[in-house]
Design a protein around this nucleic acid. Sequence first.
DNA 1: TTGACATTATACTGAGCAGTATGCAACGAC
DNA 2: GTCGTTGCATACTGCTCAGTATAATGTCAA
Lengths: 217, 217
Amino acid sequence: MQEAMSVAPKEKDVVPLEPEEAILRAAAACFSERGFSATSVDEVARRMGYTKGRIYHYFRSKGELFIATARFGLDRLVAEVDIAVKQDTASAKDRLAAMSRAHVLTQIRDLAFHRVMLQGVTMVVRGATTPDERDLLEEFLARQRAYEGIFRAVIRDGMDSGEFRRGNLTLMTKTLLLSLNGACFWFSERANQDKEELTQIANHLVHQALYGLGKQC
Amino acid sequence: MQEAMSVAPKEKDVVPLEPEEAILRAAAACFSERGFSATSVDEVARRMGYTKGRIYHYFRSKGELFIATARFGLDRLVAEVDIAVKQDTASAKDRLAAMSRAHVLTQIRDLAFHRVMLQGVTMVVRGATTPDERDLLEEFLARQRAYEGIFRAVIRDGMDSGEFRRGNLTLMTKTLLLSLNGACFWFSERANQDKEELTQIANHLVHQALYGLGKQC
DNA sequence: TTGACATTATACTGAGCAGTATGCAACGAC
DNA sequence: GTCGTTGCATACTGCTCAGTATAATGTCAA
Protein backbone atom coordinates (compact mmCIF):
# COMPACT_ATOMS: atom_id res chain seq x y z
CA MET A 1 0.00 0.00 0.00
CA GLN A 2 2.06 2.95 1.11
CA GLU A 3 5.15 0.83 0.63
CA ALA A 4 7.77 2.22 -1.69
CA MET A 5 6.59 -0.13 -4.46
CA SER A 6 9.63 0.26 -6.70
CA VAL A 7 9.44 3.52 -8.57
CA ALA A 8 5.93 3.10 -9.99
CA PRO A 9 5.09 3.41 -13.66
CA LYS A 10 5.93 6.91 -14.79
CA GLU A 11 3.59 9.60 -16.04
CA LYS A 12 0.42 8.49 -17.78
CA ASP A 13 -0.61 5.29 -16.11
CA VAL A 14 -2.52 3.35 -18.70
CA VAL A 15 -2.61 0.50 -16.27
CA PRO A 16 -5.46 1.39 -13.89
CA LEU A 17 -4.02 2.25 -10.52
CA GLU A 18 -4.85 0.22 -7.49
CA PRO A 19 -7.53 2.01 -5.54
CA GLU A 20 -5.22 2.95 -2.67
CA GLU A 21 -2.78 4.69 -4.93
CA ALA A 22 -5.52 6.37 -6.95
CA ILE A 23 -6.96 7.72 -3.72
CA LEU A 24 -3.56 8.89 -2.53
CA ARG A 25 -3.00 10.78 -5.75
CA ALA A 26 -6.35 12.47 -5.58
CA ALA A 27 -5.75 13.28 -1.94
CA ALA A 28 -2.35 14.74 -2.69
CA ALA A 29 -3.86 16.99 -5.32
CA CYS A 30 -6.63 18.23 -3.06
CA PHE A 31 -4.60 18.63 0.11
CA SER A 32 -1.83 20.44 -1.70
CA GLU A 33 -4.21 22.84 -3.39
CA ARG A 34 -6.47 23.70 -0.52
CA GLY A 35 -4.77 22.48 2.61
CA PHE A 36 -5.78 19.78 5.03
CA SER A 37 -8.70 21.35 6.83
CA ALA A 38 -10.18 23.06 3.80
CA THR A 39 -10.32 19.78 1.92
CA SER A 40 -13.32 17.55 2.40
CA VAL A 41 -13.27 13.84 1.91
CA ASP A 42 -16.15 14.23 -0.52
CA GLU A 43 -13.94 16.50 -2.57
CA VAL A 44 -11.18 13.95 -2.82
CA ALA A 45 -13.73 11.36 -3.88
CA ARG A 46 -15.30 13.63 -6.45
CA ARG A 47 -11.86 14.25 -7.90
CA MET A 48 -11.67 10.60 -8.82
CA GLY A 49 -15.27 10.52 -9.97
CA TYR A 50 -16.32 8.32 -7.06
CA THR A 51 -17.84 8.74 -3.65
CA LYS A 52 -16.83 8.94 -0.04
CA GLY A 53 -17.62 5.35 0.78
CA ARG A 54 -14.74 4.20 -1.33
CA ILE A 55 -12.26 6.23 0.62
CA TYR A 56 -13.52 5.22 4.03
CA HIS A 57 -13.21 1.64 2.94
CA TYR A 58 -9.46 2.02 2.62
CA PHE A 59 -8.69 4.72 5.17
CA ARG A 60 -10.15 5.04 8.61
CA SER A 61 -10.26 8.81 8.77
CA LYS A 62 -9.34 11.96 6.95
CA GLY A 63 -6.29 12.34 9.18
CA GLU A 64 -5.09 8.86 8.38
CA LEU A 65 -5.53 9.56 4.68
CA PHE A 66 -3.47 12.70 5.01
CA ILE A 67 -0.63 11.00 6.77
CA ALA A 68 -0.66 8.10 4.33
CA THR A 69 -0.36 10.63 1.53
CA ALA A 70 2.60 12.34 3.13
CA ARG A 71 4.23 9.03 3.86
CA PHE A 72 3.78 7.79 0.33
CA GLY A 73 5.55 10.88 -0.97
CA LEU A 74 8.34 10.52 1.53
CA ASP A 75 8.89 6.88 0.64
CA ARG A 76 9.23 7.70 -3.02
CA LEU A 77 11.63 10.50 -2.19
CA VAL A 78 13.81 8.34 -0.01
CA ALA A 79 13.92 5.68 -2.69
CA GLU A 80 15.26 8.14 -5.24
CA VAL A 81 17.76 9.85 -2.99
CA ASP A 82 19.07 6.58 -1.61
CA ILE A 83 20.39 5.79 -5.06
CA ALA A 84 22.44 8.96 -5.01
CA VAL A 85 23.70 8.28 -1.50
CA LYS A 86 25.09 4.92 -2.47
CA GLN A 87 27.09 6.43 -5.32
CA ASP A 88 30.75 5.87 -4.60
CA THR A 89 32.31 9.25 -5.13
CA ALA A 90 35.16 10.26 -2.95
CA SER A 91 33.98 13.81 -2.37
CA ALA A 92 31.23 14.73 0.04
CA LYS A 93 30.40 17.66 -2.14
CA ASP A 94 29.74 15.48 -5.15
CA ARG A 95 27.64 13.12 -3.13
CA LEU A 96 25.64 15.94 -1.63
CA ALA A 97 25.15 17.43 -5.07
CA ALA A 98 23.82 14.17 -6.42
CA MET A 99 21.48 13.80 -3.47
CA SER A 100 20.27 17.34 -3.83
CA ARG A 101 19.62 16.99 -7.50
CA ALA A 102 17.67 13.79 -6.90
CA HIS A 103 15.72 15.57 -4.20
CA VAL A 104 14.73 18.46 -6.42
CA LEU A 105 13.89 16.37 -9.46
CA THR A 106 11.77 13.99 -7.43
CA GLN A 107 10.05 16.89 -5.78
CA ILE A 108 9.10 18.45 -9.07
CA ARG A 109 7.83 15.11 -10.28
CA ASP A 110 5.77 14.49 -7.12
CA LEU A 111 5.02 18.10 -6.38
CA ALA A 112 1.60 17.63 -4.84
CA PHE A 113 2.89 14.95 -2.50
CA HIS A 114 5.75 17.13 -1.38
CA ARG A 115 3.47 20.03 -0.64
CA VAL A 116 1.47 17.71 1.53
CA MET A 117 4.62 16.58 3.28
CA LEU A 118 5.54 20.13 4.05
CA GLN A 119 2.12 20.75 5.52
CA GLY A 120 2.49 17.63 7.58
CA VAL A 121 5.81 18.68 9.02
CA THR A 122 4.84 22.20 9.88
CA MET A 123 1.26 22.60 10.86
CA VAL A 124 -1.31 19.91 10.79
CA VAL A 125 0.15 18.33 13.88
CA ARG A 126 -2.75 19.62 15.91
CA GLY A 127 -5.43 18.24 13.63
CA ALA A 128 -4.46 14.66 14.35
CA THR A 129 -6.91 13.78 17.05
CA THR A 130 -7.14 10.05 17.50
CA PRO A 131 -4.22 8.21 19.10
CA ASP A 132 -3.74 6.00 16.04
CA GLU A 133 -3.21 9.10 13.97
CA ARG A 134 -0.78 10.42 16.56
CA ASP A 135 1.24 7.27 16.14
CA LEU A 136 1.20 7.46 12.38
CA LEU A 137 2.20 11.08 12.47
CA GLU A 138 4.98 10.39 14.91
CA GLU A 139 6.26 7.67 12.66
CA PHE A 140 6.15 9.98 9.68
CA LEU A 141 8.06 12.67 11.53
CA ALA A 142 10.65 10.12 12.57
CA ARG A 143 11.16 9.13 8.96
CA GLN A 144 11.37 12.75 8.02
CA ARG A 145 14.05 13.34 10.63
CA ALA A 146 15.90 10.29 9.40
CA TYR A 147 15.83 11.72 5.90
CA GLU A 148 17.28 14.97 7.16
CA GLY A 149 19.86 12.89 8.98
CA ILE A 150 21.21 11.56 5.69
CA PHE A 151 21.94 15.06 4.50
CA ARG A 152 23.27 16.03 7.86
CA ALA A 153 25.78 13.21 7.81
CA VAL A 154 27.09 14.10 4.38
CA ILE A 155 27.44 17.73 5.34
CA ARG A 156 29.38 16.72 8.40
CA ASP A 157 31.68 14.66 6.22
CA GLY A 158 32.21 17.67 4.02
CA MET A 159 33.11 19.77 7.03
CA ASP A 160 35.58 17.19 8.21
CA SER A 161 37.19 16.96 4.81
CA GLY A 162 37.39 20.73 4.58
CA GLU A 163 35.04 20.94 1.60
CA PHE A 164 32.48 22.94 3.57
CA ARG A 165 33.03 25.57 6.18
CA ARG A 166 32.38 24.73 9.80
CA GLY A 167 29.23 26.00 11.47
CA ASN A 168 26.03 25.02 13.19
CA LEU A 169 25.35 21.69 11.55
CA THR A 170 21.62 21.65 12.26
CA LEU A 171 21.08 25.11 10.92
CA MET A 172 23.10 24.42 7.82
CA THR A 173 21.20 21.25 7.06
CA LYS A 174 17.82 22.83 7.57
CA THR A 175 18.68 25.81 5.44
CA LEU A 176 20.05 23.65 2.68
CA LEU A 177 16.94 21.51 2.54
CA LEU A 178 14.67 24.50 2.70
CA SER A 179 16.41 26.00 -0.31
CA LEU A 180 16.02 22.76 -2.16
CA ASN A 181 12.30 22.78 -1.37
CA GLY A 182 11.77 26.00 -3.24
CA ALA A 183 9.66 24.37 -5.91
CA CYS A 184 6.99 23.62 -3.32
CA PHE A 185 6.47 27.34 -2.90
CA TRP A 186 6.85 29.04 -6.23
CA PHE A 187 6.67 26.34 -8.83
CA SER A 188 3.67 26.53 -11.10
CA GLU A 189 3.34 23.91 -13.79
CA ARG A 190 2.42 25.90 -16.84
CA ALA A 191 4.36 25.16 -19.96
CA ASN A 192 7.00 23.52 -17.83
CA GLN A 193 6.95 20.07 -19.32
CA ASP A 194 10.24 21.01 -20.93
CA LYS A 195 12.67 18.51 -19.45
CA GLU A 196 15.61 20.75 -20.26
CA GLU A 197 14.16 23.63 -18.34
CA LEU A 198 13.39 21.49 -15.32
CA THR A 199 16.93 20.19 -15.26
CA GLN A 200 18.24 23.71 -15.41
CA ILE A 201 16.06 24.81 -12.54
CA ALA A 202 17.19 21.83 -10.54
CA ASN A 203 20.82 22.59 -11.28
CA HIS A 204 20.38 26.17 -10.25
CA LEU A 205 18.80 25.24 -6.93
CA VAL A 206 21.48 22.69 -6.20
CA HIS A 207 24.18 25.19 -7.04
CA GLN A 208 22.84 27.95 -4.88
CA ALA A 209 22.11 25.62 -1.99
CA LEU A 210 25.60 24.11 -2.09
CA TYR A 211 27.32 27.45 -2.49
CA GLY A 212 25.68 28.35 0.80
CA LEU A 213 27.86 25.76 2.49
CA GLY A 214 31.06 26.86 0.79
CA LYS A 215 34.06 28.53 2.34
CA GLN A 216 34.91 31.74 0.55
CA CYS A 217 32.47 34.34 -0.62
CA MET B 1 -5.23 50.36 11.87
CA GLN B 2 -3.16 48.15 9.63
CA GLU B 3 -0.93 51.14 8.96
CA ALA B 4 2.70 50.73 9.83
CA MET B 5 2.19 52.83 12.98
CA SER B 6 5.87 53.48 13.66
CA VAL B 7 7.48 50.42 15.18
CA ALA B 8 4.99 49.92 18.01
CA PRO B 9 5.95 49.55 21.67
CA LYS B 10 8.15 46.50 22.05
CA GLU B 11 7.40 43.32 23.94
CA LYS B 12 5.10 43.58 26.92
CA ASP B 13 2.62 46.27 26.15
CA VAL B 14 1.56 47.72 29.44
CA VAL B 15 -0.40 50.26 27.50
CA PRO B 16 -3.58 48.42 26.49
CA LEU B 17 -3.58 47.83 22.76
CA GLU B 18 -6.17 49.33 20.55
CA PRO B 19 -8.79 46.70 19.78
CA GLU B 20 -7.80 46.34 16.14
CA GLU B 21 -4.23 45.51 16.99
CA ALA B 22 -5.21 43.23 19.85
CA ILE B 23 -7.43 41.32 17.45
CA LEU B 24 -4.69 41.12 14.85
CA ARG B 25 -2.27 39.70 17.38
CA ALA B 26 -4.73 37.08 18.53
CA ALA B 27 -5.54 36.27 14.93
CA ALA B 28 -1.87 35.92 14.05
CA ALA B 29 -1.38 33.50 16.92
CA CYS B 30 -4.36 31.36 15.96
CA PHE B 31 -3.85 31.38 12.21
CA SER B 32 -0.18 30.59 12.53
CA GLU B 33 -0.79 27.70 14.88
CA ARG B 34 -3.71 26.01 13.22
CA GLY B 35 -3.97 27.48 9.75
CA PHE B 36 -6.65 29.60 8.20
CA SER B 37 -9.45 27.13 7.72
CA ALA B 38 -8.91 25.25 10.95
CA THR B 39 -9.19 28.47 12.93
CA SER B 40 -12.62 29.65 13.95
CA VAL B 41 -13.46 33.24 14.62
CA ASP B 42 -14.78 32.19 18.01
CA GLU B 43 -11.35 30.82 18.76
CA VAL B 44 -9.61 34.07 17.99
CA ALA B 45 -12.10 35.85 20.20
CA ARG B 46 -11.67 33.40 23.05
CA ARG B 47 -7.94 33.89 22.85
CA MET B 48 -8.47 37.51 23.82
CA GLY B 49 -11.10 36.62 26.40
CA TYR B 50 -13.86 38.23 24.36
CA THR B 51 -16.48 37.14 21.92
CA LYS B 52 -17.09 36.99 18.23
CA GLY B 53 -19.16 40.14 18.10
CA ARG B 54 -16.13 42.19 18.87
CA ILE B 55 -14.25 40.88 15.88
CA TYR B 56 -17.13 41.26 13.45
CA HIS B 57 -17.45 44.81 14.62
CA TYR B 58 -14.01 45.61 13.24
CA PHE B 59 -13.64 43.10 10.42
CA ARG B 60 -16.26 42.13 7.91
CA SER B 61 -15.30 38.50 7.52
CA LYS B 62 -12.80 35.88 8.54
CA GLY B 63 -11.03 36.29 5.22
CA GLU B 64 -10.69 40.00 5.67
CA LEU B 65 -9.28 39.45 9.14
CA PHE B 66 -6.75 37.04 7.73
CA ILE B 67 -5.57 39.39 5.06
CA ALA B 68 -5.41 42.30 7.47
CA THR B 69 -3.21 40.16 9.70
CA ALA B 70 -0.85 39.30 6.87
CA ARG B 71 -0.73 42.88 5.75
CA PHE B 72 0.01 44.17 9.22
CA GLY B 73 3.00 41.85 9.42
CA LEU B 74 4.21 42.84 5.99
CA ASP B 75 3.99 46.53 6.81
CA ARG B 76 6.08 46.10 9.91
CA LEU B 77 8.61 44.09 7.94
CA VAL B 78 8.89 46.64 5.19
CA ALA B 79 9.36 49.38 7.75
CA GLU B 80 12.33 47.62 9.31
CA VAL B 81 13.98 46.57 6.10
CA ASP B 82 13.56 49.99 4.51
CA ILE B 83 15.93 51.37 7.11
CA ALA B 84 18.59 48.93 5.98
CA VAL B 85 17.97 49.72 2.33
CA LYS B 86 18.58 53.39 2.83
CA GLN B 87 21.94 52.76 4.44
CA ASP B 88 24.61 54.31 2.24
CA THR B 89 27.15 51.59 1.84
CA ALA B 90 28.99 51.30 -1.41
CA SER B 91 28.76 47.55 -1.69
CA ALA B 92 25.64 45.70 -2.75
CA LYS B 93 26.71 42.81 -0.64
CA ASP B 94 26.80 44.89 2.53
CA ARG B 95 23.45 46.38 1.75
CA LEU B 96 21.92 42.99 1.08
CA ALA B 97 23.44 41.67 4.28
CA ALA B 98 21.89 44.48 6.29
CA MET B 99 18.52 43.94 4.66
CA SER B 100 18.69 40.22 5.24
CA ARG B 101 19.61 40.64 8.85
CA ALA B 102 16.74 43.05 9.38
CA HIS B 103 14.44 40.59 7.65
CA VAL B 104 15.40 37.70 9.86
CA LEU B 105 15.37 39.65 13.11
CA THR B 106 11.99 41.16 12.37
CA GLN B 107 10.67 37.77 11.40
CA ILE B 108 11.74 36.21 14.65
CA ARG B 109 10.16 39.09 16.54
CA ASP B 110 6.88 38.86 14.61
CA LEU B 111 6.99 35.15 13.99
CA ALA B 112 3.26 34.49 14.10
CA PHE B 113 2.57 37.27 11.62
CA HIS B 114 5.18 35.96 9.24
CA ARG B 115 3.78 32.48 9.36
CA VAL B 116 0.44 33.95 8.41
CA MET B 117 2.06 35.86 5.56
CA LEU B 118 3.57 32.68 4.22
CA GLN B 119 0.19 30.98 4.31
CA GLY B 120 -1.28 33.93 2.53
CA VAL B 121 1.24 33.80 -0.26
CA THR B 122 1.07 30.10 -0.87
CA MET B 123 -2.28 28.65 -0.26
CA VAL B 124 -5.26 30.45 1.06
CA VAL B 125 -5.78 32.17 -2.23
CA ARG B 126 -8.71 29.93 -2.94
CA GLY B 127 -10.46 30.61 0.35
CA ALA B 128 -10.98 34.26 -0.44
CA THR B 129 -14.49 34.18 -1.74
CA THR B 130 -15.98 37.65 -1.76
CA PRO B 131 -14.73 40.16 -4.34
CA ASP B 132 -13.67 42.62 -1.62
CA GLU B 133 -11.39 39.97 -0.20
CA ARG B 134 -10.06 39.25 -3.65
CA ASP B 135 -9.07 42.88 -3.94
CA LEU B 136 -7.44 42.94 -0.54
CA LEU B 137 -5.57 39.76 -1.30
CA GLU B 138 -4.44 41.08 -4.63
CA GLU B 139 -3.17 44.21 -2.97
CA PHE B 140 -1.32 42.17 -0.39
CA LEU B 141 0.30 40.04 -3.06
CA ALA B 142 1.33 43.16 -4.94
CA ARG B 143 3.02 44.52 -1.82
CA GLN B 144 4.66 41.18 -1.32
CA ARG B 145 6.01 41.23 -4.85
CA ALA B 146 7.23 44.77 -4.33
CA TYR B 147 9.09 43.62 -1.24
CA GLU B 148 10.74 40.87 -3.23
CA GLY B 149 11.57 43.48 -5.81
CA ILE B 150 13.73 45.38 -3.34
CA PHE B 151 15.89 42.34 -2.82
CA ARG B 152 15.88 41.58 -6.49
CA ALA B 153 17.23 45.02 -7.32
CA VAL B 154 20.07 44.78 -4.86
CA ILE B 155 21.03 41.36 -6.10
CA ARG B 156 21.08 42.69 -9.63
CA ASP B 157 23.36 45.49 -8.50
CA GLY B 158 25.63 42.92 -6.95
CA MET B 159 25.74 40.98 -10.19
CA ASP B 160 26.60 44.09 -12.15
CA SER B 161 29.36 45.02 -9.75
CA GLY B 162 30.73 41.50 -9.86
CA GLU B 163 30.05 40.81 -6.21
CA PHE B 164 27.62 38.01 -7.03
CA ARG B 165 27.77 35.48 -9.78
CA ARG B 166 25.42 35.84 -12.71
CA GLY B 167 22.39 33.60 -12.97
CA ASN B 168 18.62 33.46 -13.08
CA LEU B 169 17.75 36.55 -11.08
CA THR B 170 14.26 35.43 -10.13
CA LEU B 171 15.41 32.07 -8.94
CA MET B 172 18.24 33.54 -6.95
CA THR B 173 16.01 36.04 -5.24
CA LYS B 174 13.36 33.50 -4.35
CA THR B 175 15.90 31.05 -3.01
CA LEU B 176 17.60 33.72 -0.95
CA LEU B 177 14.38 34.83 0.63
CA LEU B 178 13.25 31.30 1.26
CA SER B 179 16.47 30.59 3.13
CA LEU B 180 15.95 33.69 5.19
CA ASN B 181 12.45 32.52 6.06
CA GLY B 182 13.76 29.42 7.75
CA ALA B 183 12.60 30.53 11.16
CA CYS B 184 8.99 30.28 10.01
CA PHE B 185 9.48 26.56 9.60
CA TRP B 186 11.74 25.27 12.30
CA PHE B 187 11.90 27.96 14.94
CA SER B 188 10.34 27.04 18.25
CA GLU B 189 10.42 29.64 20.97
CA ARG B 190 11.53 27.70 24.00
CA ALA B 191 14.34 29.17 26.03
CA ASN B 192 15.20 31.36 23.09
CA GLN B 193 14.74 34.74 24.69
CA ASP B 194 18.51 34.94 24.67
CA LYS B 195 19.23 37.95 22.50
CA GLU B 196 22.74 36.74 21.82
CA GLU B 197 21.54 33.42 20.52
CA LEU B 198 18.96 35.04 18.26
CA THR B 199 21.57 37.32 16.79
CA GLN B 200 23.80 34.35 16.13
CA ILE B 201 21.03 32.47 14.39
CA ALA B 202 20.27 35.51 12.29
CA ASN B 203 23.91 35.92 11.37
CA HIS B 204 24.15 32.30 10.39
CA LEU B 205 21.12 32.50 8.14
CA VAL B 206 22.33 35.67 6.50
CA HIS B 207 25.74 34.13 5.93
CA GLN B 208 24.49 30.97 4.36
CA ALA B 209 21.94 32.78 2.23
CA LEU B 210 24.50 35.25 0.93
CA TYR B 211 27.15 32.60 0.33
CA GLY B 212 24.62 31.04 -1.99
CA LEU B 213 24.99 34.03 -4.28
CA GLY B 214 28.79 34.03 -4.17
CA LYS B 215 31.16 33.26 -6.98
CA GLN B 216 33.60 30.56 -5.91
CA CYS B 217 32.75 27.48 -3.99
C1' DT C 1 -26.36 -22.54 -6.47
C1' DT C 2 -25.20 -20.73 -2.45
C1' DG C 3 -22.81 -18.41 0.82
C1' DA C 4 -18.95 -15.64 2.56
C1' DC C 5 -16.39 -11.68 1.67
C1' DA C 6 -14.81 -7.53 -0.67
C1' DT C 7 -16.01 -3.25 -2.78
C1' DT C 8 -18.69 0.72 -3.54
C1' DA C 9 -22.91 3.88 -3.39
C1' DT C 10 -26.56 6.22 -0.81
C1' DA C 11 -28.69 8.13 2.99
C1' DC C 12 -28.39 9.86 7.48
C1' DT C 13 -26.69 12.14 11.88
C1' DG C 14 -24.56 15.20 14.82
C1' DA C 15 -21.30 18.73 15.48
C1' DG C 16 -19.01 22.91 14.43
C1' DC C 17 -18.86 27.14 12.34
C1' DA C 18 -19.45 31.72 9.50
C1' DG C 19 -22.23 35.18 9.52
C1' DT C 20 -26.48 37.89 11.20
C1' DA C 21 -29.92 39.97 14.23
C1' DT C 22 -30.76 41.99 18.14
C1' DG C 23 -30.15 43.92 22.54
C1' DC C 24 -27.80 46.64 25.77
C1' DA C 25 -24.48 49.63 28.07
C1' DA C 26 -21.58 53.57 27.97
C1' DC C 27 -20.65 58.13 26.39
C1' DG C 28 -20.71 62.49 24.33
C1' DA C 29 -23.60 66.42 22.29
C1' DC C 30 -27.09 69.62 23.00
C1' DG D 1 -32.09 64.18 30.75
C1' DT D 2 -32.58 62.24 26.06
C1' DC D 3 -30.92 60.97 21.83
C1' DG D 4 -27.81 59.27 18.60
C1' DT D 5 -23.71 56.63 18.14
C1' DT D 6 -20.05 53.44 19.24
C1' DG D 7 -18.63 49.08 21.17
C1' DC D 8 -19.53 45.02 22.47
C1' DA D 9 -22.29 40.39 23.97
C1' DT D 10 -25.83 36.85 23.22
C1' DA D 11 -28.72 34.06 20.65
C1' DC D 12 -29.97 32.20 16.41
C1' DT D 13 -29.72 30.30 11.45
C1' DG D 14 -28.34 27.72 7.77
C1' DC D 15 -24.81 25.15 5.81
C1' DT D 16 -20.86 22.10 5.46
C1' DC D 17 -18.70 18.21 6.66
C1' DA D 18 -16.64 13.91 9.16
C1' DG D 19 -18.01 9.76 10.12
C1' DT D 20 -21.56 5.82 10.22
C1' DA D 21 -25.15 2.67 8.81
C1' DT D 22 -26.95 0.22 5.44
C1' DA D 23 -27.83 -1.65 1.25
C1' DA D 24 -26.52 -3.03 -3.43
C1' DT D 25 -23.29 -5.28 -6.43
C1' DG D 26 -19.70 -8.14 -7.63
C1' DT D 27 -16.52 -12.16 -7.02
C1' DC D 28 -14.65 -16.27 -5.80
C1' DA D 29 -14.96 -20.82 -3.54
C1' DA D 30 -17.07 -25.07 -2.60
